[in-house]
Write a protein that binds this DNA or RNA. Structure first.
Lengths: 111, 111
DNA sequence: TAAAGTTAGTTACATAAAGTAAGTAACTAA
DNA sequence: TTAGTTACTTACTTTATGTAACTAACTTTA
């Protein structure tokens, strides 16, 4: 059982941010609006999981989904104000990773 | 397949930090050295998972494990320099959560 | 001296989350 | 009319996590 000695807001924040792929999706969206396929390609996330995460993130107000009825249809996801508000967190992680992640270890992600 | 258009260091950083419980464990350790039982109690993590995470974190150089042969034995985990270097990241998340997490929603974590 | 307590885990089994790959829907271009 | 494109969804498999009982090493209590 949880005694709640930890800051409950921090815990809640982490329950969102530590969901696998969530932070990577938001980080990717910081470079501008993105389409579904672009994101699966760039992130390496499965369509199933991306679909779930985008729904969650939209529902929680981090992103919006815009439909452009072109041919073929274009659907773009972009950050809301709430999504953008995570920029300082992303910057802090970016900065940390530049100091503490050695370039050699990075290839471990690939397979 | 992964095209690596995202910053590889950021991706690697997130593969560590977005592991469930990892950030919460490190955040907890920022208040000082902690024992195994204290952490399971305060965090609500299962002993099995905590055990795995502590091993990973020690192996990656974020924490150290110190044994005090008292009665009963006392084992304390504490942050290394690398662990402490995550303070700005933690502070950024803390600050974000204070603005964007509404107190009411926090009870959702409990069950 | 035997039974019970304490801490720090580990183990076996159950459930939940994520990945894989094929399929669907709606539309257009050849 | 066949094939192509985008944005998903579905069925099935693999991996991750939780639960609860168990172990090891030692000490205190009856």
């Amino acid at each position: 059982m949880n005694n709640f000695e930890l800051c409950p807001r921090f815990e809640k924040a982490m329950s969102i941010l530590s969901q696998r792929w969530t932070t990577l999706i938001l980080y990717q969206l910081m470079t501008g609006p993105q389409r579904f396929c672009t994101m699966t390609d760039k992130l390496g996330v499965s369509g199933k999981t991306l679909s779930e995460r985008l729904k969650d993130l939209e529902q929680q107000g981090f992103i919006v989904r815009d439909v452009y009825p072109e041919t073929p249809v274009r659907i773009e996801y972009s950050l809301t104000e709430k999504g953008l508000s995570l920029t300082p967190v992303m910057k802090a992680i970016e900065k940390w990773s530049q100091v503490w992640i050695e370039p050699e270890s990075v290839s471990d992600i690939e397979n």
